[in-house]
């Protein structure tokens, strides 16, 4: 019984299908994500990566299939209840709470998803910010941040939810290469403390360095899933990216 629970995946996506009108964005996707795994999700633009994580985080409801998290079917749950169960995400285009300071952005997650006393919450928020290298910006208005700071704040805010599963949606888009390394190191260090991470990314070096397994989507279907080097060598993946 115990071993079965230990072997059970943290997240099980089962035969998930999502259509928008006549367009099939996700076609029968099934994948298990293990506890503590660093999982890379790649695919050309419009292949369904963001749709998939929208279905996992609850922003979209699939037409068919299921999402099971920690053994519980969460397919019908609204996003805030999924956040409370430990699913946190960042957004492809940063969506900070603009009228708040950086610290307050984190307090939202601590207030609602991981409630504790106010004093303890501020301490936790500060420790997350320190971790992310944003401590000096705690009191800054979130709409004065630079791109890389915004990306880090999004991750910090997701961390404030105290997640078991962190989904990073192109957290490195638009960053310089030294900034990419910085954010990547952060993500890897988070993965070391038992947080399972799904990373969507276009920057291949980052995906290769980060992921234990990589899944490649194309036109809503899984075309490859396995070790990073394997997936990169896959002919269909190369075709999907470069064209035939």
């Amino acid at each position: 019984m115990n071993t079965a629970a230990a072997d059970a995946p943290l997240l099980r996506v089962g035969t998930l299908t999502k259509t928008f009108g006549g367009f099939t964005a996700l076609d029968n996707i099934s994948v298990d994500i293990r506890k503590g795994e660093r999982f890379g999700l790649i695919g050309p633009n419009g292949s369904g990566k963001t749709t998939l994580i929208n279905c996992i985080s609850g922003a979209l409801k699939p037409q068919a299939g299921s999402v099971v998290f920690c053994g519980e079917d969460i397919t019908q749950l609204p996003p805030h209840l999924r956040a409370r169960r430990g699913i946190a995400r960042s957004f492809q285009i940063p969506r900070p709470f603009r009228s708040m300071t950086v610290l307050e952005n984190l307090m939202v997650g601590l207030d609602f998803a991981a409630a504790g006393s106010a004093a303890a919450e501020e301490e936790i928020a500060m420790s997350i910010l320190t971790r992310m290298g944003l401590a000096s910006k705690a009191g800054a208005a979130s709409d004065t941040l630079s791109q890389v700071e915004l990306r880090k704040m999004e991750l910090a805010r997701a961390m404030a939810v105290r997640p078991k599963l962190l989904i990073s949606d192109e957290a490195m888009a638009g960053l310089s290469s030294s900034e990419v390394d910085e954010v990547l190191d952060l993500l890897i260090s988070l993965g070391e403390e038992d947080i399972t991470i799904i990373m969507i990314e276009h920057i291949m070096q980052a995906v290769m360095r980060f992921s234990e397994r990589v899944m490649c989507l194309d036109a809503g279907k899984i075309i490859a899933l396995g070790a990073p080097a394997e997936v990169m060598a896959n002919k269909r993946v190369q075709e999907a990216y470069l064209g035939t």
């Binding site: 922003a59 805030h80 946190a88 969506r95 009228s99 939202v108 207030d111 609602f112 998803a113 805010r157």
Partner: peptide, 25 residues
């Protein structure tokens, strides 16, 4: 109160608030 913080969050960005655990509705 935290209601105020939640309202402020959803005013700024409803989807982000929802994904951060705020019961927006």
């Amino acid at each position: 109160s935290r209601i105020g913080r939640g309202l402020q969050a959803l005013r700024d960005d409803e989807l982000a608030a929802e994904c951060t655990g705020v019961p927006t509705l």
